[in-house]
Simulated assay, not measured.
Amino acid sequence: MNKDEKIAVLGFGVEGKDVLNYLKKHGFENITVLDKKNRNELDLKGIDASGIKFITGKDYLKNGLAGFGVIFRSPGFYRYIPEIIKAEKGGSEITSNIKYFLENYKGLSIGVTGTKGKGTTSTLIYEILRQVYPKQSRSAQDKSLKKSNREIYLTGNIGSPPLSILDSTDSNSIVILELSSFQLIDLNNSPNIAVVLNVTSDHMDWHKNQKEYVDAKKNIVRFQNKDDLKVINYDYGTSKSFADTSLSMNYFFSKEKRVQGVYVKDGKIITSIHPAGVHSVTHEVSGFEIGSVDKL
């Protein structure tokens, strides 16, 4: 994406503002914001709107999206509306703040999805990892201490907007992302660790059918490789089917079956995780599994 690219920001909620702030910070100038609200209804507090073109109101898509090199889609916009499809066929790149983040982020990513509970679970993982990797004094001079320090971030649907933290991250960072089907539907990168909760049925007023909903969710694991891993709720058939979607290692949690991962036996929580050769944070992620089983 070059600085002269003609860029559309589709939707000006939290995600659209995140995109605009990032683009402005990095010197992009040919930006158009499109939103169904009237211009005077948009919240521009804290936004540098200088030089930005706004197309707003009920007819904001009347002239389509043709001519834009890149279109940042906010999650509330269905991925396959006619205007987006036509622009894509005409050569436009369709992306989002989450998609752009995952394509440019260099650290360890932990993605969480499910029909219910993903916000609570994401926060739990975040808090566990903050305890495992507490922030050290900025004045610490011991390089060995600095090497062990990892910055932990919470983003996605909760926490900080993803592009607002991207410049602060590096290869030593850990990011936890709460991901909905709206965000997952067109991802082509999966998190290094994917946590799959109870996938049932939801958002049928947005997705065209149940299959599209589940297929969107599966993008959280679809592009993983053999060095990545999945943590899956074994007690839901749809969730369990995610295990065969990619080559990454599978761990499960269950209240009903003995599984490779975490399960309940005689009222006690049992863990059987031996992550040799896997990311060092796997032990900490297993803490989430125990918490999840306890709440099922």
Rank of each mutant, 00 (worst) to 15 (best):
K37Y: 08
K24C: 12
S148V: 00
V196L: 05
K135Y: 03
P161E: 06
Y133F: 06
S286R: 07
M204Q: 15
L23P: 00
G67Y: 00
G287C: 12
D235Q: 02
N149W: 09
L23S: 01
G107S: 08
K226M: 09
K268Y: 08
V264G: 01
I71L: 02
L23N: 02
L296D: 10
Y126M: 12
S148F: 02
L124C: 03
I52A: 15
S139W: 06
P161Y: 07
D142F: 15
G51E: 03
K62M: 09
L229H: 08
V195H: 01
R79L: 05
L42P: 04
G291K: 12
I270L: 13
Y105D: 10
D59G: 06
H279D: 12
Y80G: 01
N40V: 00
E151V: 12
K295V: 01
A276H: 04
N233H: 04
E29N: 14
P191A: 13
T169E: 09
K17S: 05
G291H: 05
A140S: 07
F77W: 04
I176E: 03
V132F: 02
F72S: 05
Y234D: 10
K106S: 10
S160L: 10
S241R: 07
L61M: 13
S286M: 15
S248E: 12
Y133Q: 14
G46V: 09
V33P: 04
L44P: 00
W206D: 07
G159C: 04
S254L: 09
L61Q: 06
D167Q: 04
D142A: 12
N40A: 12
I98E: 11
P75Y: 02
I125D: 06
L108F: 01
K25R: 14
D170C: 15
Y105N: 06
Y100K: 08
G11M: 12
S248N: 02
N233L: 08
R79F: 08
G119N: 10
M1K: 11
G46L: 15
S139K: 04
V221M: 03
Y22L: 09
T155Q: 11
N38S: 13
G291Q: 14
K265I: 10
G90A: 11
D170P: 01
L184R: 03
L229E: 00
E127G: 00
T169S: 06
R258S: 12
K257I: 04
N209A: 12
L44N: 09
I273A: 06
A49N: 13
L163S: 06
T245F: 04
F72R: 09
L61S: 08
E29R: 11
I152P: 05
I98M: 14
F72M: 07
I158G: 10
V9H: 07
I110M: 08
V132S: 02
P75I: 07
L179K: 09
Y153L: 12
S164N: 04
V9M: 09
G90F: 03
M249A: 06
D228I: 13
E127I: 03
P275V: 12
D227P: 02
I270T: 05
I273N: 08
Q131Y: 07
F101Y: 07
N188D: 10
S181K: 13
V285C: 01
K89E: 15
S173F: 07
Y126K: 08
G16I: 06
D215C: 03
D235F: 02
G90P: 00
V112D: 00
I7E: 05
V214H: 06
N219W: 01
T121K: 11
S50N: 14
G69A: 13
T123W: 03
